[in-house]
Design a protein around this nucleic acid. Structure first.
Lengths: 345, 345
DNA sequence: CGCAGTCATGACAGCGCAGTCATAAGCCGG
DNA sequence: CCGGCTTATGACTGCGCTGTCATGACTGCG
């Protein structure tokens, strides 16, 4: 009368069930599942066959409880569909997959009560083995947070927002490329370059501002007033309407492509031709950048490479606690010159 | 000599430690942490104070093991930064947060070996309580997959790709809006409307194709040959170069905004003015759609509402097993008319 | 005042794994 | 041919929590 397994048919099989079927101990099943050494080929095969037959899948909670590791990495995202952050997140997903870890995601909406600290906290609650903070924005709470973080943290695309024990930084210095973009415009012969900045709570926006500033300083050029947007094309458009007031305007470096597109629309409406009257350079190389009118000169960021490289560091830190952090090679960033930038006049 | 807790200072506090400090049983701590009834206010306060003092956070793995529920929901994404899928993912993240569940993410790259089935499988391995499949694409393997799925599944933005036990569908019928977009062009006076379709492995692309087709059929119009892209502006551009060959071309409905933008560029290069010679309508209302030249008429999808509504269904299915699925109200979709569409001539 | 019913709490077991240690078998060299 | 090694396996335990049940205190009511 008793069914084979002795439990209701609905219940998921456990390692003991597999063990029984394969005629081995539960521990041996565990060994096979974890690719531990000291298992004979014969036994391994029998266990795998039994597992397959029963449709066994090991219980993650039990495994995490017993081993103290969850084999998962948490990501803090910004909760926007902006091309940069979204691409970085996708890169992280792809890269995490390769490492064998699972991915947990929480997002922190800008202006939300808890912010990054809250997001990190909820990841710690979930018991992740490591944390990725992607494109952090500036906020308070970093100090108290760092005390509670007891797993390695990877900060992607910007300097770490807080000084926690095991923080590594991966990813590019986007300031460097902002500098290159600005220099591109100067070398075309523009007297100076205006900057349409991103929201300054974002490290990456500040980075780009500083890169632009450094380029102007290097070349001994006057620094025009900065106009700040919020990354959106709408804000770029609004900024463009402001900039139209300046008859001397000949070149603008925008902190991302969306703002550059909004800016170009405002310029067009104001009767300024791009690039004949005003050159525009963006940042990100979004998929549409090459197809707007005119095609946008911009900076392409290697999101996948950043994520992959950074995760390698993180996994190293997780699996070799106490060891020195791996060095991070800055992945290649590229200035893509298109029709929106040209010599003045 | 023995320190207070009797364990190394590095070890995370457990509920027994809290219990000891608060002078109650471990079970009572568990009661407080889970907001169970039958705990006096006094005890509750003492326990919370003790937990705060020790920096206690409950161990998720142990909780999951004991309760059999992980309190987490898995999402299958497409691994692209395309505006639609990325927005939907963000919407899901936001919505999940409100439900109190944690989010695990896996993505299936198009053309990858395992595909959706593999992604779902890995989520099941992780032991999620429910699964969200966002924008599924067409593929085999659905049948065998459905046998293994033992948690509720929500399919967002398209019909379910497989017949699993507990599948609910949430989200809009984008075909309906494709129809509205096409009708908008017909009502402007265009004799017929071309369609620049998305990749037909995507349900949403097929939906839009069918909506377009239905609109033409309703109005008794000839159906021009379909051009298929891959969602990218580049593919829209390529399609545009093909469409230029047709001198009778006066209106195109593109399955997303990026392709519409590429298309408009090709039209511009071919000397066809938008909207004077050719009207273009897109789909998605990406943030730049309003700022390209000319501003793009398009269809705005309420990603947040779709995700929120869908997740409500999913959580209901998780927490009330066996009950009838909740009805899903289609969230409002909106045709945004801008300058890229106008009457012919 | 006594009994049933609510409320508040604790003791205990067990969730399904992995870690530790014990054990047995094979293998080698002196 | 025996002591010491490597290899292969199992018994047992415990990870930190939740579920079940028992227990006692307190309540109201006939």
């Amino acid at each position: 009368m008793t069914p084979v397994a002795g439990r209701g048919t609905g219940a998921a099989p456990r390692s003991v069930d597999v063990a029984r079927l394969a005629g081995v101990s539960q521990k041996t099943v565990s060994r096979v599942m974890n690719d531990e050494p000291y298992v004979s080929e014969d036994v391994r095969r029998r266990v795998l066959a039994a597992a397959g037959e029963l449709g066994y899948r090991s219980n993650n909670a039990a495994r995490a409880l017993a081993s103290g590791r969850t084999r998962s990495i948490g990501v803090v995202t910004l909760g926007t569909a902006l091309y940069g952050p979204a691409s970085l997140l996708m890169g992280v997903e792809r890269a995490v997959r390769d490492t064998g870890y699972a991915l947990r995601v929480v997002n922190t909406m800008e202006g939300e009560s808890a912010g990054i600290a809250g997001a990190v906290d909820s990841l710690l609650d979930q018991g992740v083995d490591g944390i990725v903070i992607s494109e952090p924005i500036d906020e308070e709470g970093g100090a108290e947070l760092s005390a509670r973080v007891d797993v390695p943290v990877l900060v992607l695309g910007a300097p770490p927002p807080f000084a926690a024990p095991h923080v590594v930084t991966g990813g590019i210095v986007s300031g460097q490329m902002a500098r290159a973009a600005t220099e591109h415009l100067l070398e075309l012969g523009h007297t100076t370059v205006h900057h349409l900045a991103g929201p300054q709570r974002w490290y990456s926006a500040r980075d780009r501002l500083e890169g632009w500033r450094a380029a102007l300083a290097d070349h001994g050029r006057a620094e025009p007033p900065v106009v700040e947007g919020d990354w959106s094309a709408a804000s770029g458009y609004a900024a463009g309407r402001e900039l139209l007031a300046d008859p001397a305007l000949t070149a603008v470096f925008a902190a991302n492509d969306d703002m550059a597109i909004g800016l170009m629309r405002a310029l067009a409406e104001g009767g300024r031709r791009v690039p004949e009257d005003v050159s525009v350079v963006g940042f990100d190389d979004t998929p549409v950048a090459a197809y707007v009118t005119p095609p946008l000169t911009t900076v392409r960021q290697p999101f996948d490479a950043m994520a992959q490289g950074g995760l390698k560091l993180l996994v190293h830190a997780i699996e070799n606690p106490g060891s020195d952090p791996l060095p991070m090679a800055d992945p290649p960033v590229e200035l893509v010159v298109r029709a929106s930038s040209a010599a003045p006049r």
